[in-house]
Amino acid sequence: MSATTATPMPVPAVETEAAPPRRPGTLARLVREPVAAVSLVLAVVLIGAALLAPVLSPTDPYDNDLASAMALPGSPGLPLGADAQGRDMVTRTLYGLRLTLAMGLASVLLGGGLGALIGFTAAFYRRLDALLMRLMDVMLSFPAILFGLALAAIFGPGIPAVVLALSVATVPLMARIVRGSALAIMALDYIEAARATGMSDARIILRHVAPNCLSPIFVFATLRFGQVILLGSALSFLGLGAQPPTAELGAMAADGRNFLFFAPHIAIIPSVGIFLVVLVFNLLGDALRDALDPKLRV
């Protein structure tokens, strides 16, 4: 009856069953914060640009035109200029973004997923805890770069080796974070209530433990996404990742370092791309965490 009034009703002291207006959903709360809204828009733009690279780009990323080599941004037909081989920087950046995002996402999903699984297992089945965590410690002692070197030696340099190395480097970090927060959640009474109900272990983990560990997982996954992209770029820079003609932001930045004095845009444009990706996903992860937390719903 009075559910249309603008102000929410106070906790009912009067005998009425009219519910106060409903709270906004997750997405509505996400875009309410200006920083969150901007980062969401930018993330959509970045992902959209990456997905639509073949449609958006004027040329093929491997078409070279030596006549326009190192053309500066603003040259006719080349809004962002061309690289040392005369390839269009707009096209190369779009394709590079596509590959870089895919690499970062694959590593975080693979490594993070496996790490979370190990973390939940260690927290829930305490018998396995010590064994699994010592195993994680061993993995943690290998630097990602070293692991990348080893994998490149075995499988040959390339993107699969980079993704594998970055995933393996992500597993123990995620496992530790998930184990810690799962242990804290599992000490709470509602887990005991779930047990008292006769729920299966899988159901308790999926419905009661995991959703309450989402905040740290989200924050870590987004932070790690940025780190992984930087690490992947470093591996490409070392010649272990994306191989020369391939358009990948890290490899492109490495490529441009030889021409910093004559044509700085060749290094700067992919670097700005990396910077934007890392920044946008960090901000977005932060905003998402706040929006997903029912305790912060007003």
């Binding site: 009474d189 509602y190 008292a196 109900t197 006769g198 009661h208 309450n212």
Partner: peptide, 24 residues
Amino acid sequence: KLRALRRHLQIVFQDPYASLNPRL
């Protein structure tokens, strides 16, 4: 059998702030 038993025995906890899953 244990699951069936659980149906007959239920528990109410002391701390009402820790006994409900905040996400449900």
